[in-house]
Each structure stands twice: as C-alpha cells, then as structure tokens.
Amino acid sequence: MAKTTALVIIDMLNTYDHEDADALIPSVARALPAVVDLLGQARRQRLPVIYANDNFGKWRSHHGELLEAALAGPHAELVEPLRPDESAYFVVKARHSAFYETPLAYLLNSLDVTRLVLCGQVTEQCVLYSALDAHIRHLSVTVARDAVAHIHQDLAEAALRMMEINLSARIVPAADAFRRHADGG
C-alpha cells in the first residue's frame, strides 16, 4: 500500500451534555459544514476516515452506542451529517489526545498512513494534543482551520499558531486540506 493520508475526526460524535457545551455549540455549528466537506473529500478519494471520540465515561460502550447516544442528544443536527459509514474506522479515547492509550498509532501504521488531516473539537484541547502526539510520531499534520471548533477563541488561535510554528503543521482551509495528498507531496 502506498503512503497515504487519513482524515481524523475528533470528538464530533458528542452529546453536548457537559460543562462547556454552551460555549462550544456555536463554534461547532460554524465548523460543521467544513467538517462535512472534508468527510466528503476523503470518501471520494477513498482515504481512511478515522473517528477518534471520547467515550463519555462509559467504559462498556462501543462506537455504535456512542453514536446512538450522540444522535439521541439535544443537538443531533450537529452529529447526523457526520454519521460514520461502513468503511470508517473508530478509536475510542478517554483523554485529550487521540493517541493516548488508544490503538490509533497501530492503526495508522497498518494503513501505511504518514499524513493526517485533523478536524473536530476542541481546537485548544483535543485537536492540539492529538497534533502534538502525531508530530512526535513523525506524522505530517494538516489542520483544517475552518473545520475545528473551540470553547475559547483566543486559546484556539494560540493553539493553531503553536501547531503551525512548533509542530510544523499545515493550517489551511478545509478546501485545501488534501491538496498536498492530491499533488503527491
């Protein structure tokens, strides 16, 4: 298998039943169209799509139950457009990074993935820490600026700047996120 790019959708299957939900929801609503666009691009290019999602503290749940809980929540309209298809991969995480004590690194290696496009929530938390963990694993990282949601805008802007400067991440609009892959670079 040739070296490839994968889309990682972070924490978008969400019940929005948490302390920061009111601050987060408007940002998620703004980012949702770009996340949907990225998902469509990845599917059309037949790139791996990986959902890395919190388990809502339910250690006996699996990805189907997490999706059902999110769709049954008060903001199903933020979840439904991102429903995983049968080709999607799913990594359940318990902490901020999609890599921390999950099989994500093993999955990426088995798929021969060397480049990640990250999107989802929260820019200044889970997206940042996932980008850091990808960087230290020598993976190339792209973050779709318009496809990430934040709780604190100032921290999100600082996180994007840190990812770009400290992690050499490409910070681009969703429309350009797969350009490097399409160009072969």
Score class of each variant (00 low, 15 high):
W59P: 04
A70R: 05
E68Q: 14
R60I: 00
A52N: 05
F56Y: 10
L82T: 08
E80N: 07
L78H: 11
H75I: 10
E65M: 12
H63L: 02
D54S: 09
V79A: 04
L78E: 08
L67P: 03
S61T: 09
L67W: 03
L66C: 02
L78M: 11
E65C: 03
L78F: 08
L71G: 06
P81W: 07
A52W: 03
D54R: 10
L82C: 06
G64K: 10
R83S: 04
S61V: 11
G73W: 01
N53R: 12
P74V: 02
A52R: 07
H63A: 11
L78A: 10
A76Q: 12
A72S: 10
R60E: 00
L66Y: 05
D54I: 05
P81V: 05
G64E: 11
L71V: 05
L66Q: 09
G57C: 11
E68G: 03
G57L: 12
P74S: 12
L78G: 10
L78Y: 09
W59G: 13
L78D: 08
N53C: 13
R60W: 01
P74I: 01
G64C: 01
A72I: 00
E65G: 14
A72R: 13
L78K: 12
L71D: 06
S61H: 05
G64D: 12
H75R: 15
N53D: 10
A76Y: 04
G57P: 04
E65Q: 15
E65A: 13
F56V: 03
P74H: 11
N55V: 15
G57N: 03
A76K: 13
F56K: 02
K58N: 02
L67Q: 03
A69D: 14
E68N: 09
F56P: 00
F56C: 02
K58Q: 05
P74F: 01
N55E: 08
G64I: 00
N55A: 13
E77N: 13
E68A: 14
N55G: 13
R60N: 03
G73L: 01
L66A: 02
R83L: 09
F56G: 01
L71H: 10
E77W: 08
R83D: 00
L78I: 12
H62G: 15
